[in-house]
Write a protein that binds this DNA or RNA. Structure first.
Lengths: 298, 298
DNA sequence: GGCGTCCTTCGTAAAAAGCGAAGGAGTGCG
DNA sequence: CGCACTCCTTCGCTTTTTACGAAGGACGCC
């Protein structure tokens, strides 16, 4: 073996993170002996020691630290490759590749897609969540058929149509000091503890980025999957949350919450549908676009 | 095989570039059957067709085009990893890792390193060429022991010492229309055909970048390894070249060339030695630094 | 000295990868 | 229409690689 491979790097990273070959092997679902031999093989191939061994396990050498940086970058890039390639694998008659940002995904698409799929039994939809700029790029490249993005995204030469309008609001428990405010700026809530969505969520990455622009980090107490879950935890009073207004209005009916509009321009989300070329889309995708464009439905 | 590996991607890229599995297999030093089976395995793993097969060979499908983008990025990143790791592998008593930009490499280091190695039989030097900003980063990270950079580079907290001063000059054949000028600006030579160094050369990448800042590209007729070779081809009158003044002065003695100073500030190269911490260097590296710092010698 | 923890080595088996040879598919030419 | 040519695929076999369980080694602690 002359050069390291991705499986080598994956095992190496798992061992470094676990702090022992024994634990790393377990995480990699390998026998200890196999993992040990493989690490030794990597060290032979590179001509360098990657770990110091001890009774407490292993610690990376300086060379191991360097390899870790590269391993993380390569494995992340490989994950992106596999994910993007998996999007191609569904291409075929009746299959529609749809990218959405977080607002649309949670609030509007479930009902609309349910109706679409009911009316088109042979169609399938691959729905994934992305940031708006990522969506426009993937639609432009032809990797996705349809995108739903915030109007602030640069859609370049893509064809776009209005979709829905929504707004992020701050939700707080009733009785919270902010509860009486008519509106609030994002930067003014950064001192609060936050209940957020997990890192895979596009909005979560948007909020982290907006906080970074203020030279701050979000004080995340917990990260959940889904805005409804966020509202429930906010109701318990352990932090504040940012959710779409439509989610908040629905949650207020059943939870002791107060919704406060965010004053920032980026918090108003005029959502738009974008496609590379409506005329060039397969018929099933075109019919989905027409449904998405139809006036607001319950 | 569930996920693609770097060897898969390397073979895939070779086939795509060659235009046939037969030629790609040859370039990868594999039998045709092995390459064919491996591509088929990749297509199975990804669930997507990567190539259209025909009597003329193969052409990438849209999915294949996407994979090619990712493959190139991953393989480039893997090459950087292996190269950086190979720098670690030489670490040891008496081994010195030295990074230099192109001027120093060509003009000053051969004589100085020759003298150093003559006086220190047990020492070894791993000398590589980089752009100055790359050098400062790798020295700061402890991956290299000693760096030689242009004084314009941001050396941050590194310890630096003067090394040498040099200047890029334009060399042209005697009789060239520029031959009478006392000096010339880089942007004024961009209409000329160029004789350059190969893409691995730091100065070549610097010049390409400077040209890009003028919204231009270098008109490279040929790319060579070494300034002396550049001078010889310039003498033949097929283009102009940019080389260190010391090279030009030596070349003028034996070739029908004219050297014209470049007027741009960046063309004046005050070279400096940088180290992370002189006191912390192994003794052999410290002694090399002292030799490098000594006043100009023949 | 015995015990516990973690890593390394060994022999073996299974899986993967590669090879040469032969066949298949498709196109162009006489 | 048959043949030749080009390129890819399949098959059977061999070699190499990878993984396993078991046992031993190194080291520190009680």
């Amino acid at each position: 073996m002359a050069r390291l491979d991705l499986d080598d790097l994956r095992l190496f990273r798992l061992i470094a993170e676990a702090g022992s070959i024994t634990a790393g092997a377990a995480r990699a679902h390998l026998a200890l002996a196999a993992a040990s031999a493989r690490v030794r093989g990597m060290e032979t191939a590179l001509g360098v020691r990657l770990f110091e061994r001890s009774r407490q396990g292993v610690t990376p050498t300086p060379a191991g630290e360097t390899l870790m940086i590269h391993a993380r970058a390569l494995l992340a890039q490989a994950d992106r490759m596999h994910e993007e390639m998996s999007f191609h694998s569904g291409a075929g008659a009746g299959h529609i590749r749809l990218l959405s940002n977080t607002n649309a995904l949670a609030e509007f698409l479930p009902d609309l897609l349910g109706r679409f799929l009911a009316s088109a039994p042979a169609a399938t939809v691959d729905l994934r969540e992305r940031l708006s700029d990522e969506i426009t790029r993937l639609v432009a490249e032809g990797v996705a058929d349809i995108g739903i993005v915030a109007s602030t995204a640069d859609t370049g030469a893509l064809e776009t149509f209005p979709f829905r309008s929504d707004q992020f609001v701050l939700v707080v428990a009733n009785g919270h000091p902010f509860a009486g405010r008519p509106a609030i700026a994002f930067k003014d809530v950064l001192d609060q503890d936050f209940v957020g969505l997990d890192q895979a969520s596009a909005i979560q990455r948007l909020l982290a980025d907006r906080a970074a622009r203020e030279g701050r980090r979000l004080r995340l107490r917990v990260q959940l999957r889904g805005f409804d879950a966020v509202c429930r935890v906010v109701e318990a009073g352990v932090g504040v949350g940012i959710v779409p207004e439509t989610t908040a209005k629905r949650a207020i009916c059943t939870m002791a919450l107060t919704a406060i509009p965010l004053a920032d321009p980026w918090a108003t989300r005029d959502l738009r549908i974008c496609v590379k070329s409506l005329a060039a889309l397969p018929e099933s995708a075109r019919r989905l676009v027409e449904l998405l464009r139809s006036p607001g439905l319950a």
